[in-house]
Write a protein that binds this DNA or RNA. Structure first.
Lengths: 250, 250
DNA sequence: ACCTGAACACCGTTCAAGT
DNA sequence: ACCTGAACACCGTTCAAGT
């Protein structure tokens, strides 16, 4: 009882005067934010494998076990990190004008997602396969889903294409990020495979691979991503035109 | 010199009499195969995180350090495991008849890939982002690339769509496998997000998500995969029809 | 009430010591 | 020539002991 009163008093104090000391809950949230920030720095500096609870503790100059009072376990920390990446995407796409064509909205979102992937590959490889259920994710889901409903697709089809769009973009971003954040040596092994292995294949057994070796080495992950996004959006367009429900395309 | 002669003699012996003792190289290969087999069993029984060098040693009833004479490190073991999954895919698609439409070939390959993913989710989540450069991968690359050239696409476009097809299918399979092989508790947390979180969203702020909640919970990973494969193949078809090079579509 | 750090049960990998 | 197991430098996580 006494404690509860104290907490409430603190909350009121900070409510009345925004410059006053933050409440316990606010202070906890600030420390969580600081930990998430440090996780970004640490992971991008040392690679995905370098993000350990112990090293994150060092980064923050606190005992590693303190992190376990901010996050239940490492997984919860990663979900908080994932939420932050989604908030970055939301900030980047900013407003969605009423009159913006739905395809353009989705293209812009795909672009922002890719941007975050290129900026934080290590973090992306750790988090892009996860569902956070947090407020940022909820907002982004609502945004993307709204765009798909504007296509005129029936609910079940709209949802199917929404999920295809999301899983494809996230899958490709995670894949690109995984390559972009491998240990340098392993990455070398993986990235130069085309020239190292495939350029030396016997022409008799592998005529097509040999013939296209130059093209194979020069395709960029971004070109692949754009092609996939185009394909997925066009499939939705086509389905909307065929299954034409409310707004055929007038 | 003496050693070399002995090895050659052993190879000849095994060449002459297939039932005789295998050569040192053959025995090494057999032990590598046994290790890969055990890795499949262990990973699918205990989950991706359960596949450690120590436990793999236990599984094989040998000291863990022996694995380091069969594989340079754990990464090389995983690449050998990845090669095996590709060989499974190759076995599953069997022959590609001369007259089979290229789209159907690629659909069959996508189907086999999915099959392997469902059978070995833990292994898939560990390996499907990797490039092995091994013989099985080389054969599969040649197979897929050949199918894309049969579409009539110009080399650079054929390669772009080939890569889009491969990265999209692998990305979605890896994503599905990651969900399918999470620790049961984490998986629960991730898998039931739709019903746990999104069903309780306030309708005012998230009207679309709330409206589509039933559809959202009932989309299957396989339906998403099929939709994505269709989209990617149709994009290639369309590009082939437009950029019509050698064989427009006669 | 909060923090600390020792401790537990694991990793991947190496290498001197055995046979 | 081959195998063994101790050892190193790490993990995530827990909990008794301190302040």
């Amino acid at each position: 009882m006494a404690k509860k009163t104290a907490t409430t008093a603190a909350a009121q104090r900070s409510g009345d005067d925004t410059a006053a000391q933050p409440s316990r809950r606010e202070r906890r949230e600030l420390r969580r934010e600081a930990a998430v920030n440090a996780a970004f720095q640490l992971a991008e500096r040392e690679g995905a494998a370098g993000l350990s609870m112990r090293r994150l503790g060092q980064e923050l100059d606190v005992d590693a076990t303190i992190l376990y009072r901010l996050f239940r376990d490492k997984d919860e920390l990663l979900l908080a990190v994932a939420e932050r990446t989604i908030r970055m995407i939301l900030d980047d796409i900013a407003e969605v004008p009423e009159e913006e064509p739905w395809q353009q909205t989705l293209r812009r979102i795909a672009e922002s997602t890719w941007l975050v992937q290129t900026r934080y590959p290590a973090i992306t490889s750790l988090t892009f396969a996860r569902t956070t259920g947090g407020p940022a994710e909820q907002r982004l889901v609502e945004l993307i889903l709204t765009a798909f409903t504007r296509s005129g697709l029936a609910p079940d089809r709209a949802v199917l294409h929404y999920r295809t769009y999301v899983d494809t973009t996230l899958g490709l971003c995670a894949h690109a990020a995984a390559l972009g954040s491998l240990d340098p040596e392993v990455r070398e092994k993986d990235g130069t495979t085309w020239t190292r292995i495939y350029a030396r294949l016997p022409e008799t057994a592998y005529p097509v691979t040999r013939t296209y070796i130059d093209e194979l080495s020069s395709v960029t992950p971004k070109a692949i991503y754009d092609t996939a996004v185009d394909a997925v959006l066009f499939a939705a367009e086509r389905a909307a035109a065929q299954g034409g429900t409310c707004r055929p395309q007038a």
